[in-house]
Design a protein around this nucleic acid. Structure first.
Length: 615
RNA sequence: GCCGACGUAGCUCAAUAGGCAGAGCAUCCGCCUUGUAAGCGGAUGGUUGUCGGUUCGAGUCCGACCGUCGGCUCCA
């Protein structure tokens, strides 16, 4: 995206230099003033349509802006059209944005009939929250307003110099959605209008094209088109059926992962799907996680719970006998299927489901092994993710929250081990202060997909809670019991979500090694079927996944269908090929490689498989 | 769970203002034997998500439920 250049930024309050710097930090996105200003213009248009309406907050966001309103009735798509039309008029009025600092009392008077603004003003005056209700760093409270035309908003800014800097053909209102006031589900539900705005029409169009592109990649759509998986109401929301083709991709991913885990010194284990209440009482899940667990089963008078996590089972394996320091580290890995209750409204394709399989592992180690183990997990994670075509990562280190278990020294040691692991690999990362779990610090890795979206996958977490609760120990060299460190990690996260991400990343065109069907034979006429069958046999013997399109169809139709199924290799067989014992290779990119011997093709395909490339 | 929208054939979507439920693709049956993204013809296919209500008459209006989608909250 081009940086925002057109139009100036209105003069803002004079601030001390370091304060300005703080604002500059927040305003790294050059499009923010444009987006924020457009949000104000929208709020004006909405209030004109609903004079009794109440306004809440309206910040810039990635790709656009939103504004929250409390209105007497739900908004309709027609309302949005009218609001948009009115916005175009306002924009053309070239009303200047005027900044003014006011006292708390003056602000209260100005927004006397705006209860949400009054609440914000109260927080501002108290000096601990900004106008979005976010905690501030303790700067002296400044209350400011921005006025354009006849609309006034409580606002820190900055804004454009005037509404004329917003191009009437470069914004669009996208949707209206419910949003709780201050994100609190106990507070009123407001109506949020989402919009997008760009420096010019071209940029807007490019953005809308991006949205369309994302829609074409949507794993729910591709899952149906490519017959990969389904989720059917008849068997329950959030429960996934892996169809043969999706199941194959999963099993290839799992096979690869298992093989790499073994090479990396992990042990492969299995555990049941249910466990007695004792287990979950001991682990603390019944105290802290129960709202995400399904109701217990009664088995001969004992309560059993469906597992929401695998850790207690791995711990019980560790505990099954006394452990020596010589046995550590122990690394137990399992594709463990867990079930968690998720509220119906949050379910989303494969990305958010109620039953899923984690590529879970737990590492038990001695204090002196922590550093190396973390190093290895981090390297291993990136190695696995790269194999699936992900090369861009956002890494986050989350540190000790206020409420936490475990001794501070252990927290420090663990956190430093995590930090040094990242830094020793020269990886950029961001620290999320206080964002660790109550039981330990963690590293999260988001992967960036082909169109730049970030997805949370990998998590590497220390756990100071469970070793304590389960009273884990090992016998040290001195014969005395010691408590091991425990690290919990998942690399794909969940197979379901990772599969969803993979589908969207590749837009359904999996690299050859993962493609459910790697090559399809396309005989031009019936007389080529025998040779096609012979070739298919040869390819199968070479380990390739092959199909023959035997239908009474035109070659063009067969090619089209193969294209739409995103099959890497289309092998055309006509008179010439039969005569020369060759196949004519077409790639799904549309590239025609021409006729070649079956052996040459096999070599080519096997290379692509080994290299994990697209063709 | 909450707010809003939506739910019509296997899929994608039509059906003026409440008045006989339709098209393309897929499937099946024929014909064509085909050279790098859809050959032609015919047939089959729907209790309009479910249940209830209003009406002479409901795909269309009302209510409840189920589900999906966009968000909020939460998260692998």
């Amino acid at each position: 995206m081009p940086p925002f250049r057109k139009g100036g930024i209105s003069s803002r309050r004079s601030l001390s230099d370091n304060c300005k710097e703080a604002f500059m930090m927040k305003e790294q996105n050059g499009l923010d003033p444009l987006r924020h200003s457009t949000a104000h213009v929208m709020a004006q248009a909405v209030l004109e349509a609903f004079p009794e309406g109440k306004i809440a907050i309206g910040p810039p966001i990635d790709d656009g802006f939103y504004y929250d309103f409390d209105l007497p009735r739900p908004l309709t798509p027609e309302d949005l059209e009218k609001i948009e039309a009115r916005m175009r008029e306002i924009v053309k009025g070239r009303h200047p944005f005027q900044y003014r600092e006011v006292s708390a009392d003056e602000a209260r008077a100005l927004f006397a009939d705006q209860p949400y603004k009054l609440e914000l003003i109260a927080d501002l005056a108290a000096g601990d929250k900004d106008e979005y209700g976010e905690q501030t760093s303790g700067e002296p409270p400044v209350i400011s307003i921005y006025t354009h035309d006849d609309f006034v908003d409580l606002c820190r800014g900055p804004h454009l110099s005037d509404t004329g800097k917003i191009r009437p053909n470069a914004f669009k209102l996208l949707s209206v959605a419910g949003a709780y006031w201050r994100g609190d589900e106990n507070r009123p539900m407001l109506q949020r209008i989402y919009g997008t705005v760009w420096p010019d029409k071209k940029a807007l169009k490019a953005y809308l094209r991006r949205l369309e592109e994302a829609e074409k990649r949507d794993h729910r759509r591709l899952g149906k088109e490519l017959d990969l998986f389904s989720i059917q109401p008849e068997l329950g929301s959030g429960l996934v059926l892996w169809h043969p083709k999706g199941g194959l991709v999963r099993s290839l991913a799992e096979d690869f992962s298992r093989q790499e885990h073994l090479r990396a010194g992990y042990d492969l284990v299995y555990s049941p799907h249910i466990g007695r209440a004792w287990l979950w009482e001991t682990s603390g899940h019944l105290d802290f996680y129960r709202e995400n667990m399904y109701a217990p089963l009664d088995i001969e008078g004992q309560e059993y719970f469906l597992k929401p996590m695998n850790c207690p089972f791995h711990i019980m394996m560790y505990k099954s006998r006394r452990r020596s320091y010589r046995e550590l580290p122990m690394r137990m890995a399992e594709f463990g299927t867990v079930y968690r209750y998720e509220r119906s409204g949050v379910l989303h394709g494969l990305m958010r489901v109620r039953g899923f399989t984690q590529d879970d592992a737990h590492i038990f180690c001695r204090p002196d092994q922590v550093e190396e183990e973390i190093q290895k997990v981090l390297d291993f994670s990136l190695h696995i993710l790269r194999a699936f075509g992900f090369h861009d990562f956002d890494i986050y280190l989350s540190t000790r929250p206020e409420k936490a278990v475990g001794e501070p020294e252990r927290w420090d040691q663990a956190t430093e081990a995590l930090r040094r692991a990242i830094e020793s690999r020269d990886l950029p990362y961001e620290v999320k202060e206080g964002d660790g779990a109550f039981y330990g610090p963690k590293i999260d890795i988001d992967i960036k997909d082909a169109i730049g979206r970030a997805w949370q996958c990998t998590t590497i977490q220390f756990d100071f809670n469970l070793p304590e609760r389960f009273d884990l120990s090992f016998v040290g060299p001195d014969g005395q019991p010691q408590q091991p460190y425990m690290v919990h990690r998942a690399l794909f996260g969940s197979m379901e979500r990772f599969f969803g991400i993979l589908i969207e990343h590749y837009a359904g065109a999996f690299p050859v090694w993962l493609a459910p069907v790697q090559a399809i034979l396309i005989p031009i006429a019936d007389r080529h079927l025998d040779f096609a069958a012979k070739v298919a046999e040869q390819l199968q013997e070479a380990g390739l996944r092959v199909e023959i399109d035997e239908r009474q169809e035109r070659m063009n139709a067969k090619i089209r269908d193969a294209q739409m199924q995103k099959i890497p290799y289309m092998l055309i067989i006509g008179d010439r090929e039969v005569e020369n014992e060759q196949v004519a290779v077409r790639l799904r990119s549309g590239k025609n490689l021409g006729a070649q011997s079956v052996d040459d093709f096999v070599a080519k395909a096997q290379e692509a498989i080994a290299e994990k490339t697209a063709a």
